[in-house]
Design a protein around this nucleic acid. Structure first.
Lengths: 217, 217
DNA sequence: TGATCATGATAGTATAACTATCATGACTAT
DNA sequence: ATAGTCATGATAGTTATACTATCATGATCA
């Protein structure tokens, strides 16, 4: 067996240790500075690596960006799965998810949501090759499936109205998550934005609108 | 009077003819290629101008991007105002607005919505100087005021439930516009996205959720 | 002990934002 | 009509950054 190809295999499987450390470093820097303004040098510096090393693992910046997004979304998936297996009503589960990703006191989760939102925006406008992007879509689908499960359960136990189109409604819920996280980041950056509606209030309202809609009458 | 300063005044007021033509050209190119991938050269070529001329009017690419967004949003404002003065119920007005910007057969309006969505995302991550951005916020506020008017009218005439927080709910509506336009652009770019929910269906559901929520019981 | 290979350093290319300068030709005021 | 003004275009140059190529070094592994 050729060791070169073993390394290459590891690299492609994303199981390489250094690769993981670069992804984690990149996530930090992207969160701070955004995808566009972050340079590959910034990421190398974060881990005290040579820039050539970063390029060895991620020959294109876009590849690194997708890798960060996929990594993040996979962490999300486990949260969704954990909540899904909890022993409470569907409505409670959905509220737990809202609270976890948006209203959590820890700002960390919110930052993740913001980064994912930024990624989807980046993907739809700036991503050059869509080849790696299907990986992201895969994980996104599994999250969607998990939520579908939660809602179908809710219809069975009578806590959710039975005449809704499950997949479509929850897609709206998912999108609502990301949407307001972006508004929050705008709000934080721009002082004269003050007299607009506080995004957290707006988010709470949106949550209410969705919950009221899906609740069994 | 100093002619140099007159030109400078015109330039700053945005009333200069050439300036307008550059903004219109830029809007076309930005719509096609996105903010990031569009070069100043592209914009100059679109109008057969020298690149130096473009830089004379817009010393930074960011300034041109904001100018395009403000110009676009001002066109939106007139639509909102026109619909507001129509002689029909509040619910009908809101539905007209949905239809106009998203479901319209003319793809032109949808492209505008997508460009605005892209701009807000760009503003929250990549815009370097927020100085010009307040102009955009101003117009956005006037649109918000117009919508508030529509909804308050609806509460008076009894077509809208009276216990909602008007400003917050309509902010949700406005954001829903932009959100799905981005999903649409993703959908158009990515073939293997096919088995996801059709964004137009999703958008229709969202419209339904909001309308049902605000409707008087 | 010797071969392999990840790493870092460095130099180089391409592209695009942005600056500076100057010739030209259209417009404007008298 | 003429002279001056000024928008424009052409061009050359600067800087930043994505990305490539190459080589020395030192850790690891057989």
């Amino acid at each position: 067996m050729n060791p070169q190809s073993r390394w290459e295999q590891e690299r492609q499987a994303g199981k390489n240790k250094r690769m993981k450390s670069i992804i984690e470093a990149a996530e930090k820097v992207f969160s701070r500075k955004g995808f566009e303004k972050t340079t590959m040098q910034d990421i190398a510096d974060e881990e005290n690596l040579g820039i050539a090393t970063v390029f060895r693992y991620f020959p294109k910046k876009d590849k690194l960006i997708v890798a960060v997004a996929v990594n993040l979304l996979e962490r999300y998936l486990t949260v969704f799965q954990t909540v899904a297996s909890k022993n409470c009503t569907c409505l409670e589960k959905i509220e737990i998810l809202f609270n976890h990703f948006i209203f959590d006191i820890e700002p960390e989760n919110l930052e993740c949501t913001q980064l994912l939102e930024a990624f989807e925006s980046y993907a739809s406008t700036s991503l050059e090759e869509l080849g790696d992007y299907h990986q992201y879509i895969e994980v996104r689908k599994r999250i969607s499936d998990t939520l579908t499960l939660i809602m179908e359960e809710g219809i069975c136990d009578g806590s959710i109205r039975s005449d809704i189109q499950v997949k479509e409604v929850l897609a709206s819920v998912i999108n609502a998550f990301g949407l307001f996280s972006r508004k929050l980041s705008l709000f934080e950056r721009i002082p004269f934005f003050e007299d607009e509606i506080e995004p957290r209030v707006q988010l709470a309202i949106t949550k209410q609108i969705f919950l009221e809609y899906i609740k069994a009458k």
